[in-house]
């Protein structure tokens, strides 16, 4: 390798690295922005907002996105195909992508997904409930909102037993 070739290779590598680092991929680790919007629409039909936040407001999409990059990596293909199908059904029924449809239209589309791709719907429903009711440290259940909804006292109050080993086991 000549000095000129080395410098050129180094410059190209640096440029590629810098471009990769400076590209704004959004907040998602696994999903694209479009996939995240579609997933949010499906999740919000499973846990809609009432007095408490909806699934997407409680961070369920963040939960699923993080798990698809880790423990649920095996489900990435199912999500990619399922979300594409959801948008396709949305376009056929409503003329727009699922995320852009009205809430009643979204409900119709999600019910159609449940009929046509039950495996994908069950997967999303399972992961939505995990994200909504699980520990906030995994990205969902933002601010422990579902625990407060259920009246679960978190973190629990746990005082110590005031025993004294030096006085025997029953002290």
């Amino acid at each position: 390798m000549t000095r000129r070739q080395f410098m050129a290779a180094g410059a190209m590598a640096s440029a590629a690295w810098a471009a990769g680092c400076s590209s704004h991929r959004g907040p998602w680790e696994s999903l694209t922005e479009r996939q995240a919007q579609t997933l949010a629409a499906i999740c919000d039909q499973i846990v809609p907002a009432d007095d408490y936040p909806s699934a997407s407001q409680a961070g369920v999409v963040t939960y699923i996105d993080r798990q698809l990059a880790r423990h649920y990596r095996r489900h990435r293909k199912a999500y990619a195909l399922g979300l594409e199908q959801a948008d396709s059904i949305g376009a056929t029924r409503c003329g727009v992508r699922l995320a852009q449809a009205s809430p009643p239209q979204q409900l119709q589309v999600v019910m159609a997904i449940e009929q046509q791709n039950a495996a994908f719907f069950d997967l999303v429903r399972k992961h939505t409930l995990e994200g909504y009711y699980g520990s906030p440290r995994h990205g969902g259940n933002r601010d422990a909102v579902s625990w407060r909804m259920l009246g679960v006292s978190q973190p629990p109050l746990l005082g110590r037993a005031q025993y004294d080993l030096s006085k025997g086991p029953r002290s």
Partner: peptide, 19 residues
Amino acid sequence: AFFDRRERMHFAAAELPLP
């Protein structure tokens, strides 16, 4: 807020339980 070791996150004082 209290940093809870089990959940590895802070819980705001306003949301913590009073016994």
